[in-house]
Design a binder for these strands. Sequence first.
DNA 1: TCCTTATGATATACAATATATCATAGTATA
DNA 2: TATACTATGATATATTGTATATCATAAGGA
Lengths: 190, 190
Amino acid sequence: MHVRDRRVKRTQNLLAQALLALIAEKGYDAITIRDITERADIGYATFFRHYRDKDELLRDVADVVINELLEILFGQQPGQEPAAVGQLIFRYVADHSAVVRVLLGSRGPASLVQHVIQRGSENVLRQNKPRPDSPVPAEIAAHHLVASSIALIQWWIEHDMPYSPEHMGDIYRQLIVQPTLTSAFITDPA
Amino acid sequence: MHVRDRRVKRTQNLLAQALLALIAEKGYDAITIRDITERADIGYATFFRHYRDKDELLRDVADVVINELLEILFGQQPGQEPAAVGQLIFRYVADHSAVVRVLLGSRGPASLVQHVIQRGSENVLRQNKPRPDSPVPAEIAAHHLVASSIALIQWWIEHDMPYSPEHMGDIYRQLIVQPTLTSAFITDPA
DNA sequence: TCCTTATGATATACAATATATCATAGTATA
DNA sequence: TATACTATGATATATTGTATATCATAAGGA
C-alpha cells in the first residue's frame, strides 16, 4: 500500500477540518453534507465518493484521537509507574481540547443523559456537606457519583441484567458511593 | 388547570407508545415522523400539533422516567439509611428496563463514546489480573474505570479545564483508579 | 510523456419535514 | 341535552436534504 493519491488526502483533510469547525459552530445534528462541502470548498458529490454519510466522516476523525488516547493509556510497558498516567491523559486532552470537546459534546437525545447528570449532581451537592480539606472538589465528586452510576446502569441493562439488584447495589456502594463519599464529603454517622 | 381534553391525552399517549416500540425495533435515528404516526394510527399532520420534532416527543417520554428516578434517589428523608438506595435504583431499572434501555441507548456520534468505552474496557481486562474473591466482577470494574474516566474528562472540558492536569491526575487516581483497582484487581506492587 | 483517476459542475430522483386548509367528529360546559 | 369549541383526518404543497449518474477537465503517478 503506497502513498495515497495527494488529491484524496487533501479532500479528506478538508472535509475533516470543515466538520470539526462546523460542529463547534452549530452542533453536529444541524450540519448538512452541503454545509460541509461548501465549507471545505469541495464539490457536493465528491463527499459521497469518500464517505457514506456524516457519521462515517466523524468516525474517521474520531479514530485518530481514540487511538492516540489508548496508546497513552495502554501503550506503555507493563511495570511502569501507573501513577503518572492520569496526568498524561489530562495533558493530552488539554493539548487537543478542541477536538475532544467536539467528540464528547453530546447533543440530541444523548444530551438527555447530560441533563440527568446535571440535575442529579445538583441534588448531590445540595444534600451533602463537602469535606473542606479534600483535594477532590465537591462539584467533581458529585458529577462523578451521578455519571458513573448511570454508566453502571447502562452496563447492567446492555448485558441483560446478569446480576440481581441486590448484588448491583453492593457493587454500586463499593465501587462508587463509598469512595466518593469518603474522599470528598463528610460522611453522616447514621 | 383542569383535566385535559381526552383526545389530546389519547393522541400523545399513542405517539409515546409508538415511539418506544419503534426505537426498540430499529433505533431512534431510523425512525421518521410518518413511521410514528402510522404506528400510532394518527394523522401525520397531527404530530406537529403536539410536538415540534421527534426529540421533543422523546424528551416528553423521558421526563417521566427521570423524575421517578430522582425521586427514588433524593426524595427520601435525610438521615435514612443510604445503603439501600443502590438496590432501589437497580430494582426500578429492572422494572422499567424497556424504557430505560431506550433512553440510555445512545446513537449517532454518542455511540462513539460507547465504542471507546468498549475498546478501553477490553484493554483494562487484558492488562489486569482480577481478584478472585471480589464481589465486583472484573468486567464491571473495567467498564466503570473507563466510563468514569471519560465522564471526568467531559466535566473538565465542559468547565474549561479549571484545574491543572496534575491536579486532575490526583483526583482521577483517588476517585477512580485506586478504588477500582483495590476492589476488583490484584494490585501490582511496583 | 501517457495513462489513470479524482474532482467539479450539473441534473435528477427521492425521502422526509413542515405547514395550510377544510370538513367532520369528539368534548367540555352551561 | 343543546351549543360552542377544538382536535383530528385527509389532502395538497412548498421546502430541504440525501443520494446517484454523467461528462468534461485537471491533477497525479509511473
